[in-house]
Design a protein around this nucleic acid. Structure first.
Length: 837
DNA sequence: GAACTGGAAATAATC
DNA sequence: AGGATTATTTCCAGT
């Protein structure tokens, strides 16, 4: 084994530490028939969508409530300070859409988890009555809070703990949130009964209890304010809806907060980036008062809605520490509740027990899985899972902790599934979507620059993301020009895992004289999403001049319960754009496209090499082909390293490629692809390469495929096309180079899952002709392993043998880790991939 | 004056 | 444990 002598290799692979590679991307929803009794995502063309989760009780009330009702209901459900576990039935949508086939009802226990604080407990009765009086809006409370409910007092110490999660809980890395966030769609996975039966092997995988979905309830004194905000929030959305086409400056109702001190106002930013009050400031308070740590910081947490931010987030925002209470109780959560499941943070860790009456079920996190007791979001369970569930029911004694099912996982999305969703149930942000479907295509016509220094909350804005040309990124929806639609934008990851909202960065809305594009901030599962109208009169194109990037402190994010991503050196992002195109049948076609990676760190931007494109993405195992790498921060001392990782995630083979100096220059390096260590492979081998500038200065790994000689000819075309044909010329125009996206973009396959396994999602991406990979920068994309698999080619070792532990082991690890804080934990780690199958 | 920038000092995290 | 190095975060100054 050749070992490249690149210092960068000494870096820890966090995946080894956390075994996150095993955390597969969420499942994809299927093309569903409209089912009004599920989560409500009130999609309004030309207006910000209101995302609310369905309250299971809606089912009981019969038909779909008025649009506003589910909205409020969701909030009530989400924040109602009661722990409730309840049985529910799962009625998967049948083939060809629900309704047509005989409905299959699956026992799918779900846990309705809300919480009750000590202060709220005493008011519970009153609260309950009040809620009931609210009628539909309070439908969640229509039921007697009797034996179906387990009242669990909140643990203040828990809340005040420095470990309290930040409001910004990332969906990104946490298996819980991230995966769970997709759970909502899981129920949509099936579009035929056979599939349901055949794939009843859905399994739950234990996830971090720390990321359980309970939204922190606003209890006691906060509740009223909270409710007011709910309505305010609602009005806000409505207002925006109406004003969108008129004026971009929508004035929003003033924030309502128990604490009106400007000094402590919780802005969108600090809401998203809470700082634990108990944790001493890492730095002295700024003379300018930028950093504020006072008891007042937490006085009204939760009562302020980040979502409330109708206006652009101001520069230096007050740094009120926002505890979990703050963000969890945020109405915004409810607004996007379908994707935003209550954070488990609000659930006293020590009190998470089930009552005997409650059938045990695990309600997934963000995705609100199980929120829908109609089963719309409930996964099918395989036998073991069901057994486990039964076990939960049997053992659901309040005296005991829930037993942890051995291996659960959600059903996988069917390969090649169409990106069609119910308007009321849009895909979670970590859900892979194609950039093209039918005649529709969402294109990034102008990509952002490869570097954009994000600003901290303690700083003023650093402006909008710009394009290399000096202008701004431009996004266009092709193939649809009927009505205005909202373009959603958020900051996604750029690592080698599946695309998901970035835990450490948020989009930052920018307004001002220099901004010509209207935008609106919403929060979806704790991720800021900017909505920008795409108007027919503008050819459904928008110049994104209103979006900056906010950096959240690593320490804040990493302290979140359940957060497993590490901020250090995790400074690359991608800008993600989505649209939901309304269809005549009431559904929507959801498309997504992502930008090239954008380096957000000042230092990294100056020192780290960054690979933007490569001229080829594959080559015969014999190597020898020339490959041009286009990027930045390439120096004379730069090296190009090819490597292959083993099942354990550690490099098994590394070799330094020969750089052809005479054909290299500032922004490009030409290398000679080194021969693969084995010339006898019979299937394509996925490896990686990166540029290394020295110790700890290496680019993100790029994928590269070695092809067995005998399949070279028959597969090269597939691999490189519609990408560019292999080039051997020294330098070619960048536009014709293969875009070497990070290994994770949904459009570019999903490393360890899509690429390295038979991930259904990966397969979907690879097989569905319409789910073609997006081609940032107008360039072709790298081949998908699934594609190879579809052609009978084997996956490389990594995909055949993931290095993360199996479900049981994962559960153990997670539980062991989380049990440091919790006496009781139950969570579901959703693996959308077949890794554990 | 506010927003935006570039630079770098101060601080924290790792080695 | 302590110094060196690296990375992050805050602060400053200029446009």
């Amino acid at each position: 084994m050749t070992t490249a002598n690149c210092p960068g290799n000494e870096e820890l692979d966090f995946r080894l530490i956390f075994g996150e590679d095993g955390q597969q991307p969420p499942l994809g929803p299927a093309d569903l028939e409209t089912d009004e009794n599920t989560s409500f995502y009130i999609l309004n063309v030309g207006q910000p969508p209101l995302v609310v989760s369905q309250s299971h009780s809606l089912q009981r009330h019969g038909g779909p409530p008025p649009a506003i009702s589910p909205y409020l209901q969701a909030h009530h459900k989400t924040y109602e300070p009661i722990y409730e576990l309840q049985d529910s039935k799962y009625t998967p949508t049948g083939v060809g859409g629900g309704g047509n086939g005989p409905p299959k009802t699956f026992e799918c226990p779900s846990i309705q988890i809300t919480s009750i604080s000590p202060s709220c407990q005493q008011e519970m009765e009153t609260s309950e009555n009040e809620m009931r009086a609210k009628g539909p809006d309070g439908d969640y409370h229509d039921r007697p809070l009797s034996r179906d409910h387990l009242y669990l007092p909140l643990d203040h110490s828990y809340r005040d703990s420095s470990l309290s999660p930040s409001p910004c809980s990332s969906l990104s890395s946490r298996s819980w949130f991230s995966d769970a966030s997709s759970c909502e769609s899981i129920s949509h996975v099936y579009d035929d009964v056979d599939s349901e039966l055949n794939e009843a092997a859905a399994r739950f995988t234990l996830g971090s209890p720390l990321t359980s979905p309970g939204c922190s309830p606003q209890t006691g004194p906060h509740e009223e304010v909270w409710q007011q905000q709910q309505q305010q929030q609602h009005h806000h959305h409505m207002a925006f809806t109406h004003s969108l086409s008129h004026s971009h400056g929508h004035s929003l109702s003033p924030r309502q907060s128990p604490c009106h001190s400007p000094r402590t106002s919780v802005t969108d930013e600090n809401w998203l980036s809470p700082r634990s009050p108990s944790r001493p400031s890492s730095r002295p308070t700024s003379p300018c008062g930028k950093r504020r740590h006072s008891s007042a910081d937490i006085c009204y947490l939760g009562s302020l809605s980040p979502h409330h931010s109708p206006t652009a987030t101001p520069g230096p925002s007050p740094r009120g520490s926002v505890t979990e209470d703050t963000w969890i109780g945020s109405p915004s959560m409810g607004v996007s509740s379908f994707q935003c499941c209550p954070s488990e943070a609000d659930i006293p860790s020590k009190t998470r027990k089930t009552s005997q009456d409650c059938s045990g079920a695990i309600q997934s996190g963000k995705g609100d899985l199980g929120m829908d007791d109609s089963g719309n979001v409930s996964p099918l369970l395989d036998s073991p899972a069901e057994e486990a569930m039964h076990g939960l029911k049997k053992d659901g004694s309040g005296e005991q902790f829930l037993s942890v099912p051995s291996h659960f996982t959600w059903n996988k999305p069917k390969p090649g599934h169409t990106p069609i969703f119910r308007a009321s149930s849009l895909p979670p942000l970590d859900w892979p979507l194609p950039n093209q479907y039918g005649q529709y295509e969402l294109k990034i016509e102008v990509h952002p620059k490869a570097h954009h220094r994000a600003h901290y909350e303690t700083e003023g804005s650093r402006g909008a993301v710009k394009a290399t040309s000096g202008g701004h990124p431009v996004v266009k929806l092709v193939g649809y020009n009927e009505k205005p639609v909202n373009l959603q934008m958020f900051i996604g990851t750029a690592d080698d895992r599946y695309l998901r909202p970035h835990a450490f960065y948020q989009v930052h809305r920018i307004t001002g004289k220099t901004v010509a594009t209207a935008s609106q901030e919403i929060i979806i599962t704790s991720t800021k999403v900017l909505e920008i109208p795409l108007l027919p009169e503008n050819n459904m194109s928008a110049s994104i001049d209103c979006a900056g990037i906010l950096k959240l402190r690593n320490s804040d994010i990493e302290l979140r319960k359940g957060e497993t991503d590490i901020g250090r050196k995790n400074t690359r992002v991608r800008v993600v754009f989505r649209v939901h195109i309304p269809q005549p049948n009431g559904k929507v076609v959801s498309l997504q496209t992502v930008s090239i990676p954008v380096e957000c760190s000042q230092r990294s931007a100056q020192e780290l090499p960054q690979v933007e494109k490569a001229s080829i993405s594959s080559c015969p195992v014999s190597g020898g082909e020339e490959m041009v790498i286009i990027g930045s921060n390439f120096f004379p001392e730069s090296k190009v390293i090819f490597l292959e990782k083993g099942p354990d995630g550690r490099p098994q083979w590394e070799v330094e490629a020969k750089i052809i100096r005479e054909k290299s220059q500032g922004s490009s390096i030409m290398v000679e692809v080194p021969p693969y260590h084995s010339k006898t492979v019979t299937s394509a081998v996925q490896v990686q390469f990166y540029v290394c500038n020295g110790k700890r200065k290496r680019s993100q790994s790029q994928r590269f495929t070695y092809l067995p000689v005998r399949v070279k000819q028959e597969h090269r075309d597939d691999l490189d096309s519609p990408a560019v044909p292999p080039m051997s010329m020294p330098l070619v125009h960048a536009a014709s180079l293969v875009c070497t996206q990070p290994l994770s973009s949904p459009e570019h396959s999903h490393p360890p899952d899509g690429l390295l396994s038979s991930s259904p999602r990966g397969l979907a991406a690879g097989l569905h002709p319409l789910q073609a990979p997006c081609a940032p920068m107008g360039s072709p994309t790298l081949p998908h392993l699934p594609h190879l698999q579809a052609q009978g080619l084997n996956a490389p070792p990594e995909c055949q043998m993931p290095f993360h532990p199996g479900p049981a082991a994962t559960a153990s690890v997670h539980c062991a880790r989380e049990s440091l804080f919790l006496n009781f934990c139950v969570y579901v780690d959703i693996f959308a991939d077949g890794v554990f199958m």
